[in-house]
Design a protein around this nucleic acid. Structure first.
Lengths: 190, 190
DNA sequence: TTAGGCATGTAAAGTGTTACATGATTTG
DNA sequence: CAAATCATGTAACACTTTACATGCCTAA
């Protein structure tokens, strides 16, 4: 499932222009499927070229024409098929964890900074999701949207908590344990 | 930070051939930085071409020569610099969550299957990490490696728990709540 | 006898990221 | 007066994924 398919999906909910879609990617999708203009605009052009969406150009003053895209019946069908066909992946790519893996080679001050930054970004993710949820509390939005938002908040929070609770493993100079690290610190308790 | 840099990092720990590195990616790095042969072999060739690693070819019978790569002083330096220079990203790309976002368009049976599969994969991730940690318990491995393993286990576990606790939002037919979903189900409690 | 492990790689296709290019209006 | 918002896109680059190509040894 690529950005193109996701644009099609968003257009199955409501019509939008590229700029609108970008905002949705920045709010609802940010924590699990980021996308920029460089992916979105070509995707829309492609969807229009293959007849999965239609485009209405609305003239504006002082800005480029607003191109409003609407999904077609063929588009609806294609999206539902793509959705049901896909074997859904779930991939993390973390330079942060990679850096931590090699943390003995990282400057101590830099390491502290990186950990602080990561925790702050995770806290911000949680705040953003909760804010967004509060703002849309009136809308009867889909169960899927709520589930996904909740997932993002819970995981970001768990990540922040983990880092705060375990960062001493990486930065404590006066480590009294002799060699073996205490696994109880992080053992997953289901 | 790309696969090439990570290969260099692993070679800073110990010498290895491409096949060995792949195994490390499959075990220690799988949950946060997947990589296949198609990335690893070209990366090694490139590192050798730029003098950051050296290669010794060890003849073998019945298999291709084993090419053992060792990091050079220039490689050590380049790696430490790359590590300290990088602004570490942490990106999730989840087709799973994307599918769930649009779950009203997914066939009910398919949805149940997808949720079951995801939970099982997360549980397996936890099992794999814990198994790997137990096996390496004797080694005095780096604090970073332990931290990263713990992170993976905790997050995978939290994700599995979240899905199990909230999947009713997506599949319950007899939903008694009138319109608004109960946020307390997933509110992050820090 | 079949699956898995060991061991190398290439080539093309697919996709996303980043930088570039433009510019009026609104808000603080 | 500066920054953000609205609004479009292209082109080059970087990188990964997937499929292809080969083949012996060992353990169940």
């Amino acid at each position: 499932m690529d950005v193109k398919t996701l644009c099609l999906g968003l257009l199955s909910v409501r019509e939008a222009c590229g700029y609108d879609l970008k905002k949705t990617f920045e709010t609802s999708f940010k924590h699990f499927f980021p996308a920029g203009y460089g992916s979105i605009y070509p995707a829309l052009a492609d969807l229009a070229a293959t007849g999965l969406v239609e485009c209405e150009e609305i003239p504006q003053v002082g800005k480029p024409d607003r191109k409003v895209y609407r999904i077609t019946p063929a588009g609806e069908k294609a999206f539902v098929e793509a959705l049901n066909r896909t074997e859904p992946q779930h991939k993390l790519r973390s330079e942060f964890l990679a850096m931590i893996y090699f943390s003995d080679l990282v400057d101590e001050n830099r390491l502290v900074e990186v950990l602080d930054d990561r925790v702050e970004q995770l806290r911000e993710t949680v705040r953003n999701i909760e804010k967004h949820e509060r703002q849309n509390a009136g809308d009867n939005k889909s169960a899927g949207a709520a589930f996904v938002a909740g997932f993002g908040a819970v995981i970001a929070n768990a990540a922040a908590e983990y880092i705060e609770s375990n960062r001493h493993m990486l930065t404590d100079d006066d480590n009294q344990s002799d060699g073996m690290l205490d696994n109880r610190n992080w053992a997953a308790n289901g």
